[in-house]
């Protein structure tokens, strides 16, 4: 349901205390790549004190913890145990990692699919308990494959497709990989639109200035909202599982989708 997921470094107070002004639907506080090993403890304490003092209604907060096979995993989870967070983002997605996390917590999990193996097993990952979305991590994925990323992104087309299809099949959110050139708005718009057209519901980002464009791309358009309103209205009037509208057959999946569009529109004041 969310359009944008913004990573912010977990040990940087200037970003943390402004997490609600960036207009991202979800904030992912990062304990992993953006925090040096020396400062992992520092970030945990900072976030613990921050979230104990401030709470937010308008933005969901997830935390990207370190992967299950790192020495920080347990400390990360312990530090977050009693805090009001929506869930965890788990890097280096694997069934084993998700199960370990599920043993320690019952909160929603968003795994990052960022290796060829994870991609092969993406359906198993999506089926695990508490998994509410999948993030595609193209940087690590292409690194592991030993290939270069290009503007056209043909090298990640297959991976993107599989992830979007899988998430859709299991009715969870599909979150596209961040667009790494933070100063290229046109490139971002194209990249996000491509992801949308492949079936992604949202996009992750590592820079606040990208959120506006991402929100625009992944929000339902005015035409979509109007169409959805008509479908839902007619379905309520006819009270039938299937009917025709403007000569097109409308069945249950289409009605459900229209409802989702309206929910999203309502959530984001569109």
């Amino acid at each position: 349901m969310s359009r944008s997921y913004l990573f912010i470094p977990g040990n940087t107070p200037s970003m943390i205390q402004n997490l609600d002004v960036f207009d991202s639907d979800v904030i992912i506080i990062d304990f992993e790549d953006s925090v040096t090993s020396y400062d992992k403890d520092s970030a945990r304490t900072l976030i613990k004190n921050f979230l104990s003092k401030y709470s937010y209604d308008e933005v969901e907060i997830f935390v990207r913890i370190n992967s299950y096979d790192s020495r920080y995993f347990h400390d990360d989870i312990n530090a977050l145990a009693n805090l009001d967070i929506s869930g965890y983002v788990l890097p280096k997605a694997s069934v084993k990692g998700i199960r370990m996390l599920n043993k320690l917590s019952n909160k929603p999990i968003i795994p990052i699919v960022e290796s060829p193996m994870a991609l092969l097993l993406v359906e198993d990952i999506a089926k695990e308990k508490n998994v509410v979305a999948l993030i595609f991590g193209a940087e690590d994925y292409t690194k592991e494959l030993g290939i270069k990323r290009t503007l056209e992104a043909t090298e990640i087309l297959y991976a993107r497709s599989i992830i979007a299809i899988t998430a859709n099949a299991y009715n969870i959110d599909a979150i596209d990989t961040p667009y790494t050139n933070k100063d290229d708005d046109k490139g971002l718009l194209l990249d996000a639109t491509n992801a949308l057209n492949l079936g992604f519901t949202s996009k992750a980002s590592i820079h606040p200035n990208q959120i506006d464009i991402i929100n625009q791309v992944f929000a339902p358009s005015l035409e979509e909202i109007t169409e959805a309103k008509r479908i839902v209205k007619k379905s309520e009037e006819t009270n039938k599982g299937a009917f025709s509208l403007d000569g097109k057959m409308i069945d249950l999946p289409i009605i459900e989708k229209a409802k989702k569009v309206l929910e999203k529109a309502k959530k984001y004041n569109l």
């Binding site: 403890d41 304490t45 900072l46 004190n49 921050f50 003092k53 401030y54």
Partner: peptide, 14 residues
Amino acid sequence: LDYTIKSRLETAIK
């Protein structure tokens, strides 16, 4: 802000 000062001191103590 206060939460940061508190956090940095706590981390140093730890």
